[in-house]
Simulated assay, not measured.
Amino acid sequence: MKVVFRVDASLLIGSGHTMRCLTMAEALRQQGVECHFLCRNHKGHLIEQIRGAGYTVHELPVEVDVFPERDGLVHSAWLGVTQAHDVKDCQPIISALQPSWIIVDHYALDCDWEEKFQPFCQHLMVIDDLADRKHSCDLLLDQNLGRLATDYTALVPEHCTILTGPIYALLRSEFYDLREYSLKRRSQPSLKNIILNMGGVDKDNATGKVLCALEQCSLPQDCKVTVIMGAKAPWIENVQAQASSMSRLIDVKVNVSNMATLMAECDLVIGAAGSTSWERCCLGVPTLMVVLAQNQVEAAKALEAQGAAICFMLESKLVLALQNQFLNIANNYAVLTNMIECASRVTDGLGCKRVVNTLLEKF
């Protein structure tokens, strides 16, 4: 069995789409499936990381003189070329591979792209979060909280199997492995270890803005702050310099390989409202969630309504928002207890296994 992933990472797209596809690829590889990736080499791509994980990457060039038309999609600019141009680049590769499945995880692709590749594969799967465009696929996954299959019924073929909700969240196996330990150590909540993680790319340096706000907040004297950044984050040196000049000891870690362990050992995360939300929920980590993009708003609101996180926008009132939350927690640790319980009910960490089983059964 052979699977081709069409996914990109960039400073604009971020790293979450590629990382969840890598998670799924690893689960498939354990079942003996051969996985290939088709990725355009945007600035901030993760092609070398994918190759380092042992997968074949078919690199698609960035055309510096191409200015794509809007294809009618909100995120058309993420592709860097038109869908027709992307089809032209991908077709020789996919037609040669003749995969059992093509898995597409890209906001800038829709049924126009997917229909072109139906003759070259047995099945096609789409990973989406937006429910804002039509798809031509046999299996669709939207792992977001509050998403319903009915949100997609008018957007996919009648035969398409639709998987929705964090029960299908694509998490690496180590998050499930550490779930019991993480929940057990939170039976007595504390605030001694905070993680600050604004996503794998953080192109606008939200990390630096949050650090500025934290400098003005009253935290417990023995509270440690660990900043986690991706290898392609453009502001790493700035953040490192900023951290070294702060009155509080700030530990900056780049491109960590033990994220699950770090999360399991922390007491609170100040984090972006991206795909790491499901990792935090699996481990029951209380979260002060910063919304960085419009496409994160819906999921962030759903998590807050569930009691799994407290959300706020990255704006001028950030200092006041954080200060109020820390004062609230210091006066009543039940705030953390409630978030721990609510977050842990969102997902159990077995979503990737469920998705892969569905894909294999359908094959």
Rank of each mutant, 00 (worst) to 15 (best):
A206L: 02
A264P: 01
T226E: 12
C282M: 03
A272H: 02
N295E: 03
K209W: 03
A302M: 04
C266N: 14
S247G: 15
P220W: 00
V319H: 10
V297E: 13
M198D: 07
R248F: 11
D222W: 03
R280I: 07
P234F: 00
K232F: 09
A309Y: 08
K224T: 11
A299F: 04
A308M: 10
N328H: 12
Q240S: 11
I195F: 08
V227W: 00
V210M: 03
I228F: 00
P220G: 06
V254Q: 01
E265H: 06
L262T: 02
A233V: 00
P220D: 05
F312M: 15
F326D: 09
L292A: 13
L249Y: 12
L322E: 14
T276W: 06
L327M: 12
M313K: 14
I236A: 11
L211H: 00
D204F: 12
Q216W: 01
C223F: 11
A309C: 11
L219R: 00
A293V: 10
K253H: 05
L288Q: 06
N295V: 08
C282K: 06
S247N: 13
G284P: 15
A299K: 02
Q242D: 06
P234M: 00
L303D: 11
S245G: 13
A321K: 15
S244Q: 13
D251G: 06
T261R: 13
M263H: 08
I270S: 08
N197A: 14
I250D: 07
M259F: 12
I195N: 02
L320C: 14
K301M: 12
L303G: 06
V225A: 01
C311E: 04
K253N: 04
L262H: 02
S218V: 12
F312C: 15
G230E: 00
W278S: 09
A321I: 11
R280D: 09
C223Q: 01
C212D: 15
Q296D: 15
N258M: 07
I236K: 04
L288S: 07
M263V: 10
L211P: 02
S275R: 06
K253M: 07
L322Y: 14
V252G: 05
R280T: 07
N328S: 14
K317H: 13
P220V: 05
L249G: 08
L196A: 06
K203A: 15
I310G: 02
